[in-house]
Nucleic acid binder design. Structure first.
Lengths: 185, 185
DNA sequence: TTGCAACAGTTTCAAACGAAACTAAAATGG
DNA sequence: CCATTTTAGTTTCGTTTGAAACTGTTGCAA
């Protein structure tokens, strides 16, 4: 610990006794806490997969998602992509701009509505799609191999239910009794 | 679409026919793809919760995690915190520095090893802990209310198994050959 | 001892992000 | 019609991030 700005007491001899923590507060163990567990798991999985196709194709997660939704050869607008990939429009816009630079995507302005740009993958991107999909599916399988057939079905159900509920709670305006006050002291 | 840099074909009349996509490529539907689903769900949940305590206490996710592991009044080093929160040391270092500024944490240099700084929550942070834990648990309950008792147990099992497997796969050196081969089984 | 590798944390730097402001093009409507 | 609002997408700005480099400290070994 090098340039540790000297803060108040800098000695040692810390009483091993938990100084505070009133007994009536329900304990929270991070490792049992659903949001934490989901976050860590999703992170591990995404990160591993991302490294795989970053190394192989030099694309990022947003780009991979766009390739995934356009991989069928379809054409759609940026807004549609945003919806389908659950990314926001800024992220999509930036990813598209990168993909234009690397000739992965083709942008044509629509006739009927010139605000909407119609986006299509180039053959180059389609080639990546053809290679990356099996890779992605293989990885998914490797992960789900940890589960039985029954458990995989359960997982599907659970994720759907949780997502539905999480969406519902996220949409909720504001926690009813929530003060907008920054902590009393 | 304002300053759309004109890229090659800029007309319209897009043939609705999917130009490519050979039939032998297994389709990948993002909405059925586990890494994607996990990512979206974790994101929704974390984001909702983060907004909750950001608004109320002005703390970020890393700070909340640190409060969570130190909330019992324990004292530990930054490295230990990093392990327990599954954050990397840079993230922890920065969170701690913020918390020192806002008097949420106390840093004392150890006697035996002056590299390790011993970290403890201040009463102010403990007060936040006392308030935030019920909030967090309530939110967790609201989410899991979408599930039956059985399903909650399933979820626990599934997450554990998936995390274990994901960790295992993440640790795997690197798919050396270009191929995504199942490798040593 | 000193000499060097390993460790604990911090800092730096460039890329990535989110919110909000912005621009251009459509839709609305008086 | 022209003015206003909405929609589609981009840009800007300040913050956050992650990797790698760095600093101080300790442990180990010759």
């Amino acid at each position: 610990m090098p340039p540790a700005r000297r803060s108040s007491t800098a000695s040692s001899k810390i009483s091993a006794k938990p100084a505070a923590a009133p007994a009536d507060i329900p304990a929270l163990h991070l490792t049992r806490f659903l949001p934490y567990r989901l976050s860590v798991l999703a992170n591990t999985v995404s990160h591993t997969l991302a490294k795989l196709y970053e190394k192989r194709f030099g694309i990022t997660i947003p780009e991979w998602r766009i390739i995934a939704v356009l991989g069928g050869g379809e054409t759609m607008s940026a807004g549609e992509i945003a919806q389908r990939t659950a990314m926001d429009k800024v992220q999509v816009s930036r990813a598209i701009s990168r993909m234009l630079d690397s000739s992965l995507i083709l942008r044509e302005s629509g006739d009927t509505d010139r605000r909407k740009a119609l986006l299509t993958l180039t053959p180059k991107a389609l080639a990546i799609y053809a290679e990356i999909v099996p890779m992605a599916l293989t990885y998914e399988e490797e992960v789900t191999d940890a589960l039985s057939i029954d458990e995989r079905a359960q997982l599907d159900t659970l994720l759907s239910k949780l997502q539905a509920r999480a969406d519902q709670l996220a949409a909720r305006p504001a926690p009813v009794g929530a003060q907008t006050e920054p902590v009393e002291e």
